[in-house]
Write a protein that binds this DNA or RNA. Sequence first.
DNA 1: GTCTATAGGCTGATAGAC
DNA 2: GTCTATCAGCCTATAGAC
Lengths: 219, 219
Amino acid sequence: MVRIPEVAKRNGRERDPAATREALIDAATELFAERGFDGAKIDAIASRAGVNRAMVSYHFSGKKGLYAAIFERDIAEIRQEFEGIDAAVVPADEKLRRFVAAFGGHHIRRPYWSAMMLREVLSGGRHIEPKFLETLARIFALVQKIVEQGVREGTFRPVDPLFTHHTVAGCIVFFFAARPFRERMIAEGRVNVPTPDPAQFIAHVQELLTRGLAPTKES
Amino acid sequence: MVRIPEVAKRNGRERDPAATREALIDAATELFAERGFDGAKIDAIASRAGVNRAMVSYHFSGKKGLYAAIFERDIAEIRQEFEGIDAAVVPADEKLRRFVAAFGGHHIRRPYWSAMMLREVLSGGRHIEPKFLETLARIFALVQKIVEQGVREGTFRPVDPLFTHHTVAGCIVFFFAARPFRERMIAEGRVNVPTPDPAQFIAHVQELLTRGLAPTKES
DNA sequence: GTCTATAGGCTGATAGAC
DNA sequence: GTCTATCAGCCTATAGAC
């Protein structure tokens, strides 16, 4: 998963600083996701990235900076991925399907994001900068708007936007975040199922929501 | 939340060891939930419990033992709460409603359990003893059985048991685990909604699943 | 059972050589 | 930019007094 920067190996000159940065971000994402901010040690991160531990301070001015850099990258991507969903002139159930697809898509492309995000949620956002909270508030606002539209136009039965947001975000984030645990349970034979396909799960959530939020037929 | 054992205050004789143990478990649950295993420091736990830090080693032989004691208690409760659901002779959708009620009920009674559990799931169960994994496997087995029954008898459309389990567990666990974050977002005015009622959320999930899993009407 | 004092290991950060 | 060496602080665990 982590690409070790081949240019930046043996000591001396001629490295690629960008490769060092990226290798550190990739390695750190894995370890922060698996072990949390305090559980991921700088030594382990640098070692997995194949770079010297002093590089963390040099490139990110410390562990916190490295952590923040990960959020910086993912948050920027997310903002972009959600663009256009709100503006589209389609029924709310279709908008919600698109939202689920975009949200799930990000988790497929960034497998460790769910765990990073979830740990922050668990700790009340202790390690993230307040500016990121705004983006997260916008994600809720988007779902809220979709649900309200659906209830208004009759595509959805009268459901609470906050509850809906928690069910949508909850099951998707959980599915991806649970991967380490799920794979262990499968590997140890405690759970006898094949490894699930993320894309199929996203489709399952879309279907569940479309049906579960649909208004009661009055026939 | 944490009751400080009044008997065991000033140094000297006459304490209640059980009160010390409980105070430590309560305080530790909060801190482990909020900060994770590595983030929760023994000093902070003992301090919040109002007891001396050496008591952790004395009563639980170390931090790991204290952590394990929390799981011991909750896992035992959960096994009890799920008893009878499987044996009942009712349609699958009713069984699933009962499962959601029992699962949600535990989270309402033990507000910090979701975060503890979730952190373990995120890290692949790194800090829990293997014997606990069996109980967790049983929870999935229970849902699996309910879903299979529902598909067989026609109460559910043909859905995947693993996917269903992830949606059920995911949205409930997430709702409770997100409380610190949610309350912060509300307190800071970033999200303009009233604090949600857990029991209502459970009902929301029951309804969503009943409707979302129902077979397509062939009228 | 509880408390104090302390040992010993680990961790994050950085000064300075290259 | 990268690496080595090192330091100061923190954290867990425990010996021994009460």
